[in-house]
Write a protein that binds this DNA or RNA. Sequence first.
DNA 1: GCCAACGTTGGC
DNA 2: GCCAACGTTGGC
Length: 165
Amino acid sequence: MSQTRRYWLLKSEPGCFSISDLQNSPQGISSWDGVRNYQARNLLRDEIRTGDGILFYHSNIPEPAIVGVARVVRSGYPDHTARDPRSEHFDPRSTEASPIWFMVDVQYVAHLPHALSREDLRRHPALSAMEVLKKGSRLSVQPVSAAQWRDVLVLGGRPELLEDL
DNA sequence: GCCAACGTTGGC
DNA sequence: GCCAACGTTGGC
């Protein structure tokens, strides 16, 4: 496991963008655009790097869960949807010279054979500390520890991915 | 659909 | 700079 590789949980409402949408994107790659929260923006712009591991979380559905794994294939760059007046994420304050919002590109790796529900996560000591379980946790980009990453892949049924990511 | 928690806005 | 009002998120 690389010392500099880091791990993140990305939230998405599947009705908006699901892991299958990512899988079906060209080469399984999509930009992760539309994030309009400064704390998440800072992570996208400054912290998330090519090669980092992503846990894909489906939110705001009857059974929210970590449903799969992706990897970062491009680190932070300006989110051009902020400059598109037709986009619902349009922000007229953002300019080409001084962009406000950033995104990364992610590539589909795998679904987890056993998606991990919040109850699943709560049951396991290491995972019960995950940010996503905390009351009022709304951040759509969250850091994940190496131990949490490992346990999610093992419990989710893809332990072999630990060798790649 | 409810509502608690959170982030943002804007008057002062 | 404070803080009340408001809008949004997201579990339940």
